[in-house]
Design a protein around this nucleic acid. Structure first.
Lengths: 337, 337
DNA sequence: TTGAAAGCGATACCAC
DNA sequence: GTGGTATCGCTTTCAA
């Protein structure tokens, strides 16, 4: 059992043919006689030869690898998207590399600029939030998922954040709610802005005025969800409904409601954005705006691979695909008469 | 903005130096005059040159990449381990590629044998469960995490499954429980066997006889956890305590207990193996055997990188590191008088 | 059908 | 300090 990797040359010598021939049978090309093909295969078996794909890639200028770059690998949203991309990639003969940047922009850059980034055929960036100039530097088929930056020059797959928030708010209103609070995240990017905008529009259209005291804005974290729910409910005139703009905030809200000894769907109504485990566990279950996570990955991978095949490295006309969301009505919204 | 990747040659020509020199400055080697270094750097900037690391790897026979292969990327246990490995890898200058096999053994093989597997410096296999012969084929520094196969020839990082189960069972007994049930998974591998064994030993040592009616064995799934909890509690003489051997089973048990309208820690005591979100949410919180997930990743990465550096490709004496577990006592175990 | 040889992009040894 | 060149493992014309 020798350590040295055996190469195409070893196979050639052992089989008594040229490396060209070995290369041909390895790649399943025609014009090789059955006899030699068989012989070569046998030697490959015996020697346990595995071609060095890097060497191949450098001449082919194709790696058959795509990479998916995510901010954090612990978040179920990202892994769900990844599963979608992997499914398609695999079907289409691509290998998926997952890179987690741990939320550090420098990591993203390190990957894209100086390392493996150069050695994949295409890139899917999920939840990335650099500026347009940054993305323009990427001279490779690239798809932006979840967050889209205009003028980035790349295609994108997103969801209709506006509509999700709009529908949620409308649902509250349809059930007779008027004091509808929103626990909001920062508005650094479109997703945050759009969700707030959807809420606001729905309110205005229904003749309600969004009140400042019902608008809590902090980070997109569970602890803020908890804290603001406490604040809202301890105020003199608490809201009858709370819209939690992401899954973490929603979890925090659920915990706060429990700790306040309030009955969900009775003392307070709640809608979350994005599915989460607690929302499904508590009773009544929490109504949420569901986004098609896996489908986002599928779409992104399909678009990317098509791009790779067409070698449209330069995007003339970036395409944005907006996937629809769905309001999963469960029991956490009380019908006021 | 041209598409063609620019190479070291382009830089050399533009800077009026040889490729050797460019290579030197790119790699930060000494023996380059400040003047030329500066000039070359300038050209690199202008041309936006990014070295092709694959080409470099093929001559260096080093990629500075390690891969982590997991069965499924959606499972928080795996992602926690991954975070640990990434931390170390990054610190040591390695890039981490995450590969999800989606539970398909063929995928694992595809990766290891014919693809990128060849192009990383080392491999961490988490939760893999092939036979020894399979692992022996891997001629690369490799660490097995969580599941260990004897005679595989590789190092491993595991936890003390036996002790975890033993402590949990002892805890029940210390609190006066005698009818202690176990909802068990399959015994295909050591982890499953050891957990059951720990339970059994603790019982026997305490003078209790593990009864067949209190031993439910199925798959490691939430649905089985749910189903068996139902069965146990609906039987004529239900147990007073249940040991759920993994996080999914534990979640199922929690849901069943809720649906049976039983009070946790009062009508029924419960201990889970491995932390999980529901265990922390319900009140009282569920006592669990905590395993040091992140630390497992850290250990594995450290061992792997050391091995890579020592070029111990052939392991003479595989090393097994067993990390300890901890019983997190929370409120789900009732003190019987 | 097969082989020889040039080349992919970079490194590293050896001269100068 | 700097450059020339063999080399890494493989693919791909071009001839034979």
């Amino acid at each position: 059992m020798t350590i040295k990797d055996i190469t195409i040359k070893d196979v050639a010598k052992q089989a008594g043919v040229s490396v060209s021939t070995v290369s041909r049978v390895v790649n399943g090309l025609d014009r090789v006689s059955d006899a030699t093909r068989k012989r070569v295969h046998k030697v490959i078996q015996e020697l346990n030869f595995v071609p060095n794909t890097m060497a191949a890639s450098i001449v082919r200028k194709k790696t058959n690898m795509i990479s998916v770059v995510v901010p954090e690998i612990q978040n179920p949203f990202y892994t769900a998207v990844i599963e979608g991309t992997e499914e398609i990639a695999k079907r289409e003969g691509f290998f998926t590399l997952v890179i987690s940047t741990n939320g550090e922009e420098s990591e993203e850059e390190a990957f894209l600029e100086s390392f493996l980034g150069k050695n994949v055929d295409g890139i899917i960036l999920i939840g990335s939030h650099r500026d347009a100039a940054f993305y323009k530097e990427i001279r490779k088929p690239t798809i932006l998922v979840d967050r889209y930056i205009n003028d980035s020059g790349h295609d994108g797959v997103m969801i209709d954040n506006y509509r999700g928030a709009y529908e949620a708010t409308k649902h509250f209103m349809a059930y007779g709610h008027e004091r509808i609070a929103i626990i909001d995240g920062t508005h650094d990017f479109n997703d945050g802005k759009d969700r707030f905008w959807g809420y606001k529009q729905a309110m205005l259209e229904g003749g309600l005025t969004p009140e400042l005291r019902y608008h809590k804005q902090g980070s997109w974290t569970e602890s803020d969800g908890y804290r603001y729910t406490m604040e809202l409910m301890n105020a003199s005139q608490p809201p009858t409904a709370i819209f939690a703009v992401n899954n973490l905030i929603c979890k925090g809200a659920i915990k706060a409601i429990r700790d306040l000894n309030l009955t969900l769907g009775e003392d307070i109504s709640l809608i979350g954005f994005d599915e989460n485990e607690l929302a499904q566990f508590v009773q009544p279950q929490v109504t949420v705006v569901r986004r098609p996570t896996r489908e986002m990955g599928v779409q992104a991978a399909e678009m990317l691979i098509q791009k790779i095949r067409e070698e449209q490295k330069e995007v003339s006309n970036p395409k944005k695909v907006i996937l629809d969301v769905e309001l999963l009505k469960r029991g956490s919204v009380k019908k006021l008469k």
